[in-house]
Amino acid sequence: MTQSRHDWPSLVASRSDAPAPPRASAARIGVGGPVGSGKTALIEALIPALHRRGVDLAVVTNDLVTKEDAERLRRSGLIAPERVLAVEAGACPHTVIREDPTLNMAAGDDLEAAFPGLELVIFESGGDNLASTFSLDLVDWWIFVIDVAGGDDIPRKKGPGVLKSDLLVVNKTDLAPHVGVDLPRMLAEADAVRGGRPVVATNARSGAGVEDVADAIAHAVLFRE
């Protein structure tokens, strides 16, 4: 039952042929945040940035009842299509990243079994609200993506995603002038509510700020210097 929801049966089948080598598993990170804040766009920008750092990676996407984001990543040409798995939440997206992350954990295990040198699995949560957080049974470290167009009052609202994430990404900085947002103030308020935990401003379209996100991942969970 757990595995029938994956849409990449060959990987599931190869699991028993390729026993996991006796080493610590690949790092797992989460990317969460409100609907449309730019989670998939950020991952699309991160893939080449991480590839340039020599990181062997794969992605698991979570959508409500479709595989939209997985299909988009597979078609992107940025990553081998078989390195992208989709999990359908079927319910509130936070249930499969927090309350019962077993579907996602199994997808991560399948990817590790299929790609022995794998160093990093990125889990994109389905778009949710400001309260969504990841279970640390699923991921080692997680990013919360909000965007400028969602309003500069988002940090002040102190949602658990904004407060507890290991890295807060404020995306779509290019839109600030169009939506009347004072970006420096929004970033300062984000800093203030997060008590010293990092905040990065990005434009996932142009790639601005994406290197900083890749560096943070490399430092925190890949243990690059």
């Binding site: 610590a24 790092a27 797992r28 640390l136 507890k164 243990f223």
Partner: peptide
Amino acid sequence: RADMDRRRLR
């Protein structure tokens, strides 16, 4: 306390 559940940390 909040970091005790992590499998990976620095």
